[in-house]
Design a protein around this nucleic acid. Structure first.
Lengths: 246, 246
DNA sequence: GTCAACAGTATGTAAGGACATATTTACATC
DNA sequence: GATGTAAATATGTCCTTACATACTGTTGAC
């Protein structure tokens, strides 16, 4: 059992009850009353504590789950994921796009190692000192044309990985097969100009525009599974998305 | 009244009923059975047609609204927005970010005109030949440092616009004040290298990396209100987002 | 001692009813 | 004829109830 979640619900307010709950829990998470990892009481108890029906409570939690603040697991319970998420958003999948559009992506593994995680990686994956990760770089091509240069680190307590598997299957496919259920990812998209190394591998010129993407993905248990930095040829790749206002 | 929406609901399927409805309507929209702009029957009738309860029907429509395929308006009805949206996603607001972080953005209006829309603009905003739009370019700076170069077109049947208003208030603020309720936007993020014009205005060098963003925004009535192309200095701007898996 | 069945727990799905509120349309009043 | 009000319509919110299903831990049989 966790804290009884002291929220004030004002039934005379024009603000819908479920939204009051959302705001209250959001505030509690951002304010530190509910630190990351906290287990909430079950829906029925929570509803009773606030004198709400379960559907109303559930609708509130639905929103919080969608916005990435909470994670639910059937038969288990609900947990606070992160207090970092600033805003509700979602986005399309990533390179799975390629296979969906019918193209046949090819992957060349440029390097592969099982090493002690360096400091930035440990921070991104929330690992302690001395933790080991798989670290590798890949070059992805479509129709023989190089498209993306990808550097990734994956925690090593999920599944064994090897070079040949990475060449045949996408990283996410491998991890999903290993039982990982991805729930959310933090991404940052920017731009750089190609250095000599990147230009050579991507078949373009030094100084050409590249799209960069850094990402850390979290699974349904709340642990950070994978972090990486990708660069794409700007002339053949861009991120397309549809944003929905709530 | 619209078409009675012939969907097959299999109550013995392990797929939840509401999700069967989502899939069915999604398919109908993508398949052209429900073209953009179609008015659906009201929730109660639809539920009755499929022998479902209203909450179940509503849950299905909730998802479709969230994914951007449908638009609901209280007291009015539900409408198909677009068949283009391929995937559920959302994202943070845009340059409002700046004011939220406490910075004081400044805007310089570089050009402003009320002109016949050119072909790409007409297509983006779904306007007929001869339609007129406001077209303008702005330079946004933070703490005196130029950050973004923005080119936009806005349909002219919403509100009168002028140069001085744009310098003082954000575009979205102006449009919202004019009664526009934004519902969704299509965005594409990429990269280019700065040309001479861009370099000069953004205070950087020719060949520097820039982040590009093209966007078309749609309001709750389903009409495309605004379209634009922005470029940002890559060394001081990137798009950060949290993706949530459903 | 190992493994399988079972009970407990928490979320997932679904139904049905009731009332609130925003929008539009039609009507009645001034 | 203009204006304000009321009815009709459709979505928004909320409650009660019921059963399904996934996961965990414990108990019991072999």
């Amino acid at each position: 059992m966790a804290t009884p979640l002291k929220l004030h619900i004002d039934r005379s307010s024009p603000v819908p009850l479920y939204h009051q709950v959302v705001q209250g829990i959001e505030a509690a998470i951002h304010g530190g009353t509910l630190p990351a990892g906290t287990r909430l009481d079950n829906e029925i108890d929570l509803a009773a504590q606030l004198n709400l029906s379960r559907p109303t409570m559930r609708k509130a939690m639905d929103e919080l789950v969608r916005s990435g603040l909470l994670v639910r697991k059937r038969g288990v319970g609900t947990q606070v994921v992160s207090s970092q998420v600033r805003r509700h958003l979602e986005l399309s999948s990533l390179f799975d796009d390629l296979t969906r559009t019918g193209s046949k992506p090819q992957t060349e593994v440029l390097s592969f190692s099982h090493v002690d995680a360096d400091e930035p990686t440990r921070e991104a994956l929330q690992l302690g000192t001395g933790a080991r990760v798989y670290h590798f770089t890949r070059l992805r091509s479509v129709d023989g044309k190089p498209l993306a240069l990808m550097e990734n680190s994956v925690r090593d307590d999920i599944t064994d990985m090897d070079e040949s598997g990475l060449a045949k299957r996408g990283l996410y496919e491998i991890l999903r097969t290993a039982g990982v259920n991805f729930r959310l990812a933090n991404q940052r998209i920017g731009a750089v100009t190609a250095n000599e190394y990147q230009a050579k591998l991507l078949g373009t010129e030094v100084g050409a525009a590249l799209v960069t993407m850094e990402r850390t993905a979290v699974d349904d248990t709340g642990r950070a599974v994978e972090t990486g930095r990708h660069v794409y040829r700007a002339d053949s790749y861009s991120f397309e998305m549809t944003l929905v206002q709530r």
